[in-house]
Write a protein that binds this DNA or RNA. Sequence first.
RNA 1: GGCCACGUGGCGGAGUGGUGACGCAGCGGACUGCAAAUCCGCGUACCCCGGUUCAAUUCCGGGCGUGGCCUCCA
Length: 439
Amino acid sequence: MDLKLYDTLSREKRVFQPIDPARVRMYVCGPTVYDYAHIGNARPVIVFDVLYRMLRQIYGADHVIYVRNITDVDDKINARAAERGISIGELTRTTYENFKNDVKALGCLPPTVEPRATEHITEMKTLIERLVASGHAYVADGHVLFDVPSMPDYGRLSNRSLDEMIAGARVEVAPYKRDPQDFVLWKPSKPGEPSWPSPSGIAEQGRPGWHIECSAMSWKHLGETFDIHGGGIDLVFPHHENEIAQSRCSFHTPFMAHTWMHNGFLQVEGEKMSKSLGNFFTIHDLLQDWPGEVLRFNMLRTHYRQPIDWTLKGLEESYATLRHLMGEGTSAAPQFAPGVIEALSDDLNTPKAIAELHALHARGESEALAGSLAALGFTQRPRSRREVDKTQVEALVAQRLAARKVKDFAESDRIRDALTAMGVILKDSKDGTTWEVAP
RNA sequence: GGCCACGUGGCGGAGUGGUGACGCAGCGGACUGCAAAUCCGCGUACCCCGGUUCAAUUCCGGGCGUGGCCUCCA
């Protein structure tokens, strides 16, 4: 069965054909490690994890390379470290550890490689030197800038012509730029900022611009060209556009990645997530109240390219649905059932895949269901975070059973009400009474 | 202002040029001492206006609405 993926560059769904099926290569833009990642950041992580799992099933686990970078040099990092009075190294290290734990709780597999920007300064400088040598970049006032007009088809990914961008420019243009759209590859470091010896004959120390790191790391770990490049839709311009410019002009290739994939944005309760509206949630915050599987499921209920409205109601539904689907927690080896992989093969149609899970459930195909759930990253039935005293509950359940036996229903219902108040839900059947903790 | 998405029943959310997915909620029934859970069954939709067509929710054009990018934010 063909895997079809929507490509932002060509604006169409296309059959995915790896450049080398023995070595399928995917690059996804990862976090800037200055603070806890928010729930919007979790979307690409989860979406591309599903794609990673699919690719592993299709091409074999050893034939897929998934690179997700860590941006550990950035103005926000510098500012935050200074604010907290800790070193940049300490900030990026602890933030990354938190990120890793959060993402693991969301059921995401670790990528094959998680390269750090600061460990690829050499590669960045090599690219910069190449771009300067080939006339695609120039040195000005201690900076190295990419010469955008030197690339005739710049702007194809975001569908912007050079003229449009000049017309739309509303930011003050730095005086050292030859063209308003030229972007920074390397810039001087101020005292106290991280710095490295500069490329291209610049005497003072400096640091890389934002975009160059992804060109450098994808090159190092995947090669000059590769199969899939992913990220949030907000990265289309300027970030990915500039990556393409850097990589293609460095290597003189007609493309950087075959398929460009971008996930849609997330809103919270119908509003833009922002700290001022008080609806800003980190993954870490949400994990205090919800099992990671529920957050993951909630994310996959919506197709990745659609906007998603993150709501409490949605989370409650996801919790109930997942518990329903996972029954008593049957486990199986990860294996997508045919209907599920078919849905996913159509540009990662996860809502349709979930409908298939319901169909498997209805048909009682528990092995296929459990295998598909596991393949999608759901291995544990979500459990309530509520704490109950198990001994006390068991005692009350036994008392209630005794009362029912002698048909003392008033007492029986009183005990049930008491248990309900404690957050315990009873389930009577002819085989006896079981109980579970309410969400 | 420019570019780009999206707009489906009470809610979430697929999909299709012509028999109205799926889930949640709701309603009816079975089961139960009564409930819950479970099982069976039921209803309601395709933003607006044109156009193409035998036929449009699905294609085309316009409008309205929401969101994103154009400011190193997924």
